[in-house]
């Protein structure tokens, strides 16, 4: 299990066309990054409402935040400590100046990032990676005319995703082999750990190259060639997709109209 992994379901959001979901996620990301307090509040309410609509529990969404908590803390404190402005009274004796502006910026930026994580997680938790890739490919297809190789990009992304679990297994296997010969991981002084990690990298790299060689041959044998191909699943826009697009358009209008 890794963060943002697909959670099977049949919710309203699960059933939307991946293109619509990708487009919506991009639109919401831009709004989040550009918005002021009003837009952020509104987006927060919208995303929180979206969680049950996606058939996700608060716990599942909370887990998506676990790996980024340290980053959030860092983000908050950097803004808190390095923003110029009006100092908050009790702090000068500690030789650090904490300002009202810093507090606000820290809180606001962390809030923004929380929204981004929530937004991205809803997308990846309700969309199979194959559908994501499929959607990206269709969205990029019009750009073929200006030389964007949409089929190849989609192929590359999907193969990379397909081999993530294989790599994790492989690292495990190499680790076990090293441990069997007396190596230790995740303990000891830092430089020992780095050295140990390096000893994993080389065999992993070698195996990956070997695997890539094999894979190319196997793909060629199955009539792979660069250029147009078709997919098992045909994407189609239906009325829930139009409804979703209308909602997103509404949010964008709201953001624009607010001074």
């Amino acid at each position: 299990m890794y963060t943002g992994q697909y959670i099977p379901g049949n919710s309203l959001i699960h059933r939307l066309d991946p293109r619509v979901k990708i487009g919506a996620a991009i639109a919401l990301t831009i709004l989040t990054l550009r918005g002021g307090a009003f837009t952020e509040s509104f987006l927060s309410a919208f995303l929180i409402a979206l969680i049950p609509c996606s058939g996700l529990s608060a716990y599942q969404m909370g887990r998506a935040f676990k790996p980024v908590l340290v980053f959030f803390a860092l983000l908050f404190f950097v803004h808190l400590l390095f923003t110029q402005g009006k100092p908050i009274p009790p702090f000068p004796p500690w030789r650090v100046t904490v300002t009202y502006e810093g507090l606000y910026r820290g809180a606001f930026t962390t809030w923004q990032f929380a929204l981004l994580i929530c937004n991205a997680s809803i997308l990846t938790m309700t969309t199979l990676s194959t559908d994501l890739v499929n959607g990206i490919e269709r969205l990029l297809r019009p750009l073929r005319r200006i030389g964007v190789p949409s089929y190849d990009i989609a192929m590359m992304v999907s193969i990379a995703l397909r081999f993530v679990p294989t790599f994790l297994e492989e690292i495990d296997r190499i680790k076990t082999a090293h441990i069997a010969r007396g190596a230790t991981f995740g303990s000891g002084p830092l430089f020992r750990r780095i050295l140990a990690a390096k000893s994993l990298l080389l065999p992993l790299l070698l195996r990956t190259m070997h695997r890539a060689d094999d894979l190319v041959v196997a793909m060629e044998a199955r009539a792979y060639q660069r250029g147009p191909r078709t997919y098992l699943k045909e994407l189609s826009i239906t009325w829930p997709d139009y409804a979703a697009m209308t909602v997103i358009a509404g949010i964008i209008c709201l953001h624009m109209l607010w001074p």
């Binding site: 199979l128 990676s129 194959t130 890739v133 999907s158 193969i159 995703l161 397909r162 294989t166 695997r211 094999d214 894979l215 196997a218 793909m219 199955r222 009539a223 792979y224 060639q225 147009p228 191909r229 078709t230 997919y231 098992l232 699943k233 045909e234």
Partner: peptide
Amino acid sequence: DNQIVGMTVEEDVAFGPGNLALPPIEI
């Protein structure tokens, strides 16, 4: 391991016919 390209079993089996650019129903 080195000959499976799809993220799901059915997607993998669909790889060949997809390369032949067959219509989705046929795939």
